[in-house]
């Protein structure tokens, strides 16, 4: 019996040392990308009538799968709540987190996560019923506030009220949908979440004209993809896949013309490098030359993703705002592909 136990322990120890391959190798061996997404957030992650995931973050999962595995459908989605997302990532049940997650110091440094840039610049705001007659968030003394737990929203709210020396009463819920019910039922005076969420929520109301979004944006919410600490190759892949979609918009590459532009080297060397008709940027990532080509082909460039899921012509109806390209006065900017 003792011998068997010893043998088993030895086998476990051996197993532990033998398998320390990077996430890229794991994903390739598995043939599937484990993508952690929101379990339901309007415009960013939802399920359509055929049981297919769709949304802004989902498109990024697809782009990643297309770049790494060559097939945008080879994804296993891992829906996560605000509280479970990091545990799922750190326990290696998921490979990458595309789940509207705010990049903060503590998460980056202390929770041992690696943020790979920002694919959506958001900021926290307030929405109140018009009949409350509030013009500024500073008038909200004593208000009850509907809020989602386990998010940065909760902490920002506490900070804002402390700085302005006013009181509030939190009405916490687990998800966006519950908060929406609460504010509609009048169980709280104010609803706070990221401005994108406020707009999306207001769009679902029967009487959107009776609700005001207050002018104050009380926080910076840079949302972006997350990987685990200590796997730089995989982190590079995620970061540059995101950048490639942005560069595609800057360079005028869309899902429609990418095949044409990527067929042979053209006049613009940056397009050539990005689409792999010149140089071998993909090889440096551990992928092939056509990685970015496939990602853009699968979901389109940054602008296409934005307009399809949350843009002006969708029910969510968001403006590009801070998320316009830097050349159009926004913050979206990618380091060069060189």
């Amino acid at each position: 019996m003792k011998r068997i136990l010893l043998g088993a322990t030895a086998a476990l120890a051996l197993g532990a040392t033998a398998v320390s391959a990077g996430t890229l190798d794991d994903v390739k061996a598995r043939g599937e990308l484990n993508c952690i997404v929101n379990s339901g957030f309007v415009g960013f992650a939802s399920v359509d009538k055929n049981g297919k995931y769709q949304g802004y973050d989902i498109d990024y999962c697809k782009a990643t799968a297309a770049a790494v595995l060559g097939d945008a459908s080879k994804i296993k989605y891992k829906p996560a709540t605000g509280k479970t997302r990091f545990t799922i990532l750190n326990s290696k049940e998921g490979d990458v987190l595309w789940r509207n997650t705010t990049w903060t110091f503590v998460r980056d440094v202390d929770v041992k996560l690696a943020f790979q840039g920002v694919n959506y610049y958001d900021g926290q705001g307030f929405m109140v019923p018009k009949k409350l007659g509030v013009k500024s968030a500073k008038d909200l003394d004593g208000a009850s506030v509907c809020i989602q737990t386990g998010t940065t929203t909760e902490l920002n709210l506490a900070d804002f009220f402390r700085v302005n020396k006013i009181k509030y009463e939190p009405v916490p819920t687990e998800g966006n949908e519950e908060s929406r019910r609460n504010i509609l039922a009048g169980r709280c005076d104010v609803y706070t979440t990221d401005a994108s969420g406020l707009a999306a929520t207001r769009a679902t109301f029967k009487d959107p004209e009776n609700w005001v979004i207050l002018p104050e944006i009380i926080s910076k919410e840079p949302l972006g993809p997350v990987t685990r600490h200590g796997d730089d190759q995989w982190s590079d892949i995620i970061r540059w896949t995101k950048n490639a979609l942005l560069a595609a918009e800057e360079l005028g590459i869309t899902s429609k013309n990418v095949d044409e532009l990527g067929a042979k080297a053209g006049n613009n060397p940056e397009i050539n490098r990005l689409l792999g008709t010149e140089g071998d940027l993909g090889g440096m990532l551990g992928l092939d030359k056509k990685w970015a080509h496939r990602a853009i082909k699968a979901v389109g460039n940054y602008g296409e993703i934005f307009e399809r899921n949350i843009g002006k012509n969708t029910p969510v109806g968001l403006e590009r705002g801070l998320n316009a390209l830097w050349t159009n006065g926004g913050l979206q900017y990618t380091p060069p592909f060189r």
Binding site: G40, V42, A45, S46, V47, D48, P79, T81, N176, P315
Partner: peptide
């Protein structure tokens, strides 16, 4: 909680369809 979508999870994920 652990990322399996039962009928309630499906309902929530569907509710997020814009």
């Amino acid at each position: 909680i652990i990322g399996l979508l039962d009928i309630l999870g499906m309902g929530r994920a569907s509710l997020a369809d814009s």
